[in-house]
Design a protein around this nucleic acid. Structure first.
Ligand SMILES: [Zn+2]
Ligand SMILES: [Zn+2]
Ligand SMILES: [Zn+2]
Ligand SMILES: [Zn+2]
Lengths: 161, 161
DNA sequence: ATATAAATGTAATGTTATAACATATCAATA
DNA sequence: TATTGATATGTTATAACATTACATTTATAT
């Protein structure tokens, strides 16, 4: 579970361009269209390792000459979420780029209440527990959202001084 | 993990009155005030095993002669959530009465997309995984929300016919 | 009784999200 | 290459959810 992109240092330009290329490739493979707005929306999310609200994204899109009305952003973000390129953070009514779009996963979203950064861990233990529940209760799980609020290591250190 | 109130049959009147009594007792113990609006708000949530939006609750409160403006509902619901008597369902921007307010727990919310009922399971496996993550990544978890969307057994059966 | 705090109430506004409809673009094929 | 059907982009209008700021009432503690 260690690969918690977002709270660790990394070459961010590289991180963004790699992610965009991978997204393009994935969309090609699936035969869905990674159009300019969609691409730009993902790029906007990738620029920050934070969750952005639909209206924040919209603002950026409109600066780039795309439409200015809410559905523009909601549709682009909806596409990204559908394709697993981004996740919706329910707790914040906001969106983050996925940190491992290549892997089929249930994301565990980590929200730092200090610096408002958002990171994503892949939850490994969860699946077994949920399948077990299905057997016991008859509830069939289609999708799961796991979101934790807390303090990242940086903010914990800062608080100690 | 079996005790999934909400998807199983039960004497509902009893279920409501018991819960209200327990809530009263708990508030007394803690020295917080279970005032009429708060009590009524909980009762409204208990009447359904569904998640209700703040404005739905507000409507019921106002019918009963309480204030008619959003803060009335948001404050009552906020109180209930603080005291662990209800949970906020982030996925629905809505609220459910807690199914086991006596136990200190991380709720796992189960949302049926067929009938829109909401149930609550106590997650037993989760804690260990999250504490492990804390050790590995330095992220300190303060609270966790787990929400699953899927199909309850009733709806699964109906779909088979 | 009076001071203090907590709870309830309203008005105004801010934020997030969708429905409904019009237009443009793309992809397949007649 | 013109037609057509599907997908995507765009707008308007409105719905749904939530908070800030301030006034009034009610409870609790001197
Ligand atoms: Zn990055
Ligand atoms: Zn932080
Ligand atoms: Zn609960
Ligand atoms: Zn159902």
């Amino acid at each position: 579970m260690p690969d918690v992109v977002g709270f660790t240092k990394h070459n961010h330009k590289h991180c963004v361009s790699t992610a965009l290329k991978a997204a393009q490739a994935q969309c090609d493979t699936r035969g869905v269209r990674f159009t300019p707005v969609r691409r730009r929306a993902l790029e906007v999310l990738l620029e920050h390792h934070r969750a952005l609200g639909a209206y924040d994204v919209l603002e950026r899109l409109q600066e780039d000459g795309y439409g200015s009305k809410p559905p523009i952003a909601y549709r682009a973000l909806g596409f990204l979420v559908e394709q697993g390129l981004a996740h919706r953070v329910e707790r914040l009514n906001a969106y983050v780029a996925c940190a491992h779009p290549d892997r089929d996963h249930t994301p565990a979203i980590l929200i730092c209440s200090g610096c408002h950064k958002v990171a994503e861990a892949i939850d490994t233990t969860q699946n077994s527990g949920l399948r077990q529940m299905q057997a016991e209760t008859g509830f069939t799980v289609a999708s799961v959202a796991i979101e934790a609020e807390g303090t990242c290591s940086d903010c914990t250190e800062k608080a100690r001084s």
